[in-house]
Design a protein around this nucleic acid. Structure first.
Length: 679
DNA sequence: TCTGGGGTCCTGAACCAT
DNA sequence: TCTGATGGTTCAGGACCC
């Protein structure tokens, strides 16, 4: 706690939603909700317009749709948010070298360390200047809190929202905090809040009066002492610029609970691969492998195993995760699986082993050097560093495709590709879709990590997503205008389907191009999708058609086709991501978000070459300039021509193969920037 | 009417060594 | 030799944050 309010906390207002509104002028002033659009999605961010309907973050998406049926529901575009965040963080670093980012949209800054401010007046001036700079650089607003400690600065920025600045003068904090809810304090969530309320403690003032001993008795040593100090306004935590990562994990929630043990094992392997990929990307290895299982009743359990030394070997992590899974009862169903690694280091057991060998010449190394779980892996070596699906797939009798698209049918008709690593050079789109989309899979449409080895389309990382079956969604308004859907649902061409959970209820297997019937109810697509194995050359997914006032749809963006028989990964010509599109006044759409930035690809079986335009993706037209795809269908693509700096733009429709239309990169939120990123 | 994903931190039990 | 205290490590679960 310092004598001057020189710790600054910045919190961007409704960040994701604001970025979308800034990027798409027609959404400004409208309720925009960003989050997972699948049947189990939750709201990540709601614009202030949406909050007026009672929508807030962490709310189940289904509930949000009921409260705000006319909102625009969008899947997060993390790469865009990251780019904007970097601009904002850059401005913060101009103020001080001590910047502690908490997330993409939040950070502490130590103004004293930067020599920017040593008293209230200077701190306030710096805060005001920062807000103006952020608006100038991004067009977005942020709220600033200034105080003598991190806790108070954060409380201040919360109070300042939206688009404000609040400075808490040292000495006034207890008076200010006293009437506030205990939930204001960091570390008091729903459970602790309820606990305190039952003890008759509702405000920070009452918390301070309760006394340390009482709080320790109620909440435990660490939490009790800490909370009491917070209630008194005492907080000495410094602003820390760099923090070491402690663990790396990945997890997936499934649209429908998994029952099939084979499928569960397969998913755990996939997660292990992804986790190791992330681990390596971060330059770490780890000692403790953690398996997380959330069961059908939402009960969550974890199992962990600590190795003798750190590893970043995908086979070792796979093995450990598989062993841990064996100790878990999954009867009844599993809704989430996760694999994590903690106890991080920047070397591996194998490094040490090699080092020891080198040191001893050819001498026998220490007998114990092998990691506890270093049983030989069935998998092929993993030169790509992310385990492109080798191990689990090897048994499946496929004819030799490495990491090929490997559909497995889920109950929702979702088709997933194998654990491809998506080495897509263009933009890593496929992977993004999978990661970002995560549970945000739209009805019936599932994208798994791109099949990667896309020899044809390249654009989107061959996303074989079939099963757009239930993808057409109608809002409560009803399908005022019939959504256009064209193309049979893609049936990925791939031979052999390990883990194609035939046990999953409802999953259609071996269907070719099951059609996606529009589903006016808009319910989750528990039916319809078709996962197929051994079929070649089915056509791509349903395309969304954005129609004003009415409905939009989701598209399983996948284009697929090609090459089934040989067992080649069966993915060709990925279509771009069906990005979500919120249409003003209307409904919304989702997309499997295959995620190619350009959102355009060539789909269809061998020889077919029809361009597909992912809804929401940025485009450039030779005559009309920059715009974004609002929807497409039956050979047409509808584009809204507007740019971040413009007003709401006009909508025009073109043939999908219009030579004057080309995909482009997102425009900067401020300034004209290079517009046409056309390829 | 349901509840994401990626983290951090804390607590308590069990076990082992001193 | 047995017992108890103490402390470190591992494991599992839970709360919280954005």
């Amino acid at each position: 706690m310092r004598a001057a309010p020189t710790i600054l906390h910045l919190d961007m207002d409704a960040f994701y939603a604001s970025v979308e509104q800034a990027s798409k002028p027609s959404l400004r002033g409208k309720a925009v909700i960003v989050g997972g659009l699948g049947p189990r999605g939750v709201v990540a961010t709601a614009s202030y317009e949406a909050r007026r309907f009672g929508v807030h973050s962490a709310m189940p998406m289904a509930q949000a749709r009921r409260l705000c049926p006319n909102g625009a529901y969008l899947i997060p575009r993390f790469r865009l948010y990251q780019a904007v965040s970097e601009i904002v963080m850059g401005l913060l670093r101009e103020l001080s070298p001590l910047v502690e980012p908490l997330s993409l949209d939040e950070a502490f800054v130590d103004l004293e360390a930067g020599g920017v401010a040593f008293d209230s007046a200077a701190a306030r001036a710096a805060g005001e200047r920062l807000r103006a700079d952020i608006r100038a650089a991004t067009g977005l607003s942020g709220s600033v809190g200034l105080a003598g400690s991190k806790m108070l600065a954060k409380v201040a920025s919360e109070e300042a929202k939206p688009a404000g600045l609040l400075l808490i003068e040292p000495g006034t904090e207890r008076e200010l905090l006293a009437p506030m809810s205990v939930r204001t304090l960091p570390g008091v969530g729903p459970v602790t809040g309820q606990h305190l309320r039952r003890a008759g403690i509702a405000t920070v003032g009452e918390l301070a009066e309760a006394g340390e001993d009482e709080l320790v008795r109620m909440l435990g040593r660490s939490h009790g002492v800490g909370l009491h100090r917070m209630a008194l306004g005492l907080d000495d935590r410094p602003v820390v610029a760099e923090r070491d990562t402690k663990s790396v994990s990945v997890e997936d929630t499934f649209d429908v609970d998994l029952h099939d043990r084979v499928r569960i094992r397969y998913e755990v392997q996939r997660l292990a691969d992804r986790c190791v990929g992330r681990l390596r990307d971060s330059g770490h290895s780890g000692r403790t492998i953690v398996l997380k299982v959330r069961r059908y009743d939402f009960s969550t359990l974890t199992r962990s195993e600590t190795l003798r030394g750190p590893t970043d070997d995908v086979a070792v992590v796979r093995e450990a995760a598989a062993r841990l899974l064996e100790s878990v009862d999954t009867t009844g169903g599993v809704r989430l699986l996760g694999v994590g690694v903690s106890g991080l280091a920047d070397y591996t057991q194998e490094d040490l082993f090699a080092f020891a060998l080198a040191a001893e010449g050819e001498g026998a190394g220490p007998a114990s050097a092998a990691p506890a779980s270093a049983a030989p892996a069935p998998a092929a070596p993993d030169p790509a560093g992310a385990g492109a699906g080798a191990g689990a797939d090897a048994e499946a009798g496929d004819t030799g495709d490495a990491g090929g698209a490997r559909p497995s049918s889920g109950a929702d008709g979702a088709t997933e590709t194998g654990p491809g690593t998506d080495p897509d050079p263009v933009g890593g789109g496929g992977a993004d879709g999978a990661v970002e989309g995560g549970s945000g899979r739209p009805a019936g449409a599932v994208g798994a990590p791109g099949a990667g080895l896309d020899p044809v389309g390249g654009v989107g990382g061959a996303r074989v997503s079939a099963g757009a079956g239930g993808a057409v969604e109608a809002g409560p308004d009803g399908p005022a205008a019939a959504p256009e859907v064209h193309g049979a649902d893609g049936a990925p061409g791939s031979a052999d389907t390990p883990g194609a959970g035939p046990g999953e209820a409802g999953g259609a297997v071996d269907a070719v191009g099951a059609s996606g019937a529009p589903r006016p109810g808009g319910a989750a697509g528990e039916s319809g999708g078709a996962a197929s194995a051994g079929v070649s050359g089915a056509a791509g997914g349903a395309e969304p058609a954005g129609l004003s006032g009415g409905v939009v749809s989701a598209g399983a963006s996948g284009a697929s086709g090609a090459a089934g028989a040989a067992g080649a990964a069966g993915a060709a010509g990925a279509a771009g991501g069906a990005e979500p599109v919120g249409v003003a006044g209307g409904v919304v759409s989702a997309g499997a978000s295959a995620g190619a930035v350009a959102g355009v690809g060539v789909s269809g079986g061998v020889g077919a070459a029809e361009r597909r335009w992912g809804a929401g993706s940025d485009v450039w037209h030779a005559v009309y300039g920059a715009g974004w795809v609002q929807g497409s269908g039956v050979g047409r693509v509808t584009v809204r021509f507007e740019r971040p700096g413009s007003g709401p733009g006009r909508v025009r429709t073109f043939r999908v193969d219009d030579p004057e239309l080309a995909p482009s990169d997102p425009l900067p939120l401020v300034g004209d920037g290079p517009a046409a990123g056309a390829e």
